[in-house]
């Protein structure tokens, strides 16, 4: 099934050359949420680019991830305004609580972390986005509470 969606994307680029690499990577990530090993190899075959080069290009950009997203996808803004308002401490805290680095997914597959440059909410800095929902003026303590709430919800779901 996974490969089918990669194939589908590549059918949209039948005569593509290496200049189409990034749009294809973006489209595949759009479909699957991340770039799997199989996807990287198939894209490379399609464009006649070695897998190491595809991986090299993809790792150059922050937007690509190589693990599936977690159930809760946490985006921490590290733009200028958020930085001034202390987003580094927020990010450090998330990394400590979730025990993952940006771009990675926790082992229980619940959480994934992404660092973004600006989400356009500078007036509300620092901003965090979890599954599309914005959290404004986040402090490390506040975010820790939000994450705990997500966890509690999952525990309740598991019992029920």
């Amino acid at each position: 099934m996974e490969n089918a969606s990669v194939e589908k994307v590549m059918q949209r680029y039948p005569k593509a050359g290496r200049d189409s690499l990034i749009p294809i990577l973006q489209a595949v990530q759009e479909e699957q949420g991340y770039l799997s090993e199989d996807a990287v190899v198939s894209i490379g075959r399609h464009l006649r680019i070695p897998a190491s080069k595809v991986f090299g290009v993809a790792t150059f950009y922050n937007q690509f991830r190589f693990q599936p997203r977690g159930k809760y996808h946490v985006m921490v803004c590290r733009g200028t305004a958020c930085h001034v308002k202390g987003s580094l401490r927020v990010l450090d805290m998330v990394m400590k609580v979730l025990k993952i680095e940006p771009g990675k997914t926790s082992r229980d597959k619940l959480f994934s972390l992404e660092v973004v440059a600006c989400m356009g909410g500078c007036g509300l800095a620092p901003v965090v986005n979890i599954n599309g929902q914005f959290y404004a003026k986040v402090t490390p303590m506040k975010l820790q509470r939000i994450i705990e709430e997500c966890r509690a919800k999952e525990r309740a779901n598991a019992k029920g």
């Binding site: 070695p50 190491s52 080069k53 991986f55 090299g56 790792t59």
Partner: peptide, 9 residues
Amino acid sequence: VSAIDFVQR
């Protein structure tokens, strides 16, 4: 062969 390339940035 291209077994290796630059990764990250």
